[in-house]
């Protein structure tokens, strides 16, 4: 058997094709590692907690409850949403929490594996893939809860509900792709992670998470062009069985996110040695 040869030198063979091929190959060979890391993190997370899975939706639930209260008590006046407001608010915050979680996942997973990264050579893509597994696991629970909501509020079953997982997967890919670009910078400077968290809170208010797009005004323009808008709206439309008005914009965003994800993977792969060098733990 010919021995595998590795060459480490200063010059990067900056051929996207080769880098991408290596990257995909590593994803394939490290499939057990990715799964194992996900299993490890999920089981450890719930073994040291009584409320366990509840924590996954306590945050979106409280945000939704707060808005439902604000709306029903008449403190604020929101424009009509087309579906019962509790479903609207809860589906919004839940989908939003899935998106923000997927944006933060690559950075937080890479950060958590810093000790491994600086000591051992293993396929780093496994961190990203295991992150996606964990997101899928957490999202699945949230989705179940959302479906329960949909039935409780009498919206009932729609065929589009079956498409919902695919739309959600698109949202995960978009979030992870964005996260991949943030990760190298975020590993170097703590500011980046904080800035992203801060920015996302702000971004939530220009996305139709807890209220619909206004009919006129500056907010309408911002919210219409915000690439997060079609993700939230289309996912929600599929859950509640409404006509997805923003479907074409959604498809464009997902279409863009796939090449973005690929470039993000290559960028991540190139950046890891620099991160290791600058952050030796």
């Amino acid at each position: 058997m010919a021995l595998e040869t590795r060459i480490y030198q200063k010059e990067n063979q900056l051929r996207i094709g080769k880098l991408l091929k290596d990257s995909l190959q590593d994803i394939y060979t490290s499939r057990f590692l990715s799964r194992q890391l996900a299993v490890r993190d999920i089981s450890a997370q719930y073994r040291q907690s009584y409320l366990g899975i509840l924590w996954a939706f306590i945050m979106p639930l409280t945000t939704a409850v707060m808005w439902i209260f604000l709306n029903s008590s008449g403190t604020i006046r929101l424009s009509a949403t087309g579906v019962p407001y509790p479903v609207y608010a809860f589906s919004g915050t839940l989908i939003w929490s899935i998106i923000t979680e997927s944006i933060n996942a690559p950075l937080s997973n890479t950060n958590a594996a810093k000790g491994l990264l600086t000591k051992l050579n293993f396929p780093k893509e496994a961190l990203i893939i295991s992150g996606i597994y964990k997101l899928l696991f957490n999202s699945a629970i949230k989705v179940l809860l959302l479906v329960v909501f949909v039935f409780v509020f009498g919206i009932g079953f729609h065929w589009s509900l079956l498409l919902f997982p695919f739309v959600l997967l698109g949202a995960l890919v978009i979030g992870t792709a964005l996260g991949l670009f943030i990760t190298p910078l975020g590993m170097l400077y703590k500011d980046v992670g904080k800035l992203i968290r801060f920015g996302l809170t702000f971004l939530m208010y220009v996305t139709p998470v807890v209220y619909a797009i206004p009919k006129t005004g500056l907010m309408k323009t911002v919210m219409t062009y915000n690439p997060m808008t079609p993700i939230i709206l289309t996912t929600r439309d599929f859950v509640t069985g409404q006509n997805p008005e923003h479907l074409s914009y959604f498809l464009i965003v997902v279409g863009c996110s796939i090449p973005l994800f690929v470039i993000g993977l290559v960028f991540y792969r190139l950046s890891i040695p620099i991160i290791v060098e600058r952050s030796s733990a």
Binding site: R6, Y8, L117, I274
Partner: peptide, 14 residues
């Protein structure tokens, strides 16, 4: 071990 990239020179490992 391939954790850091060299600034000069070359490593070949089989």
């Amino acid at each position: 071990n391939g954790l850091l990239m060299p600034d000069a020179g070359k490593v070949t490992i089989k």
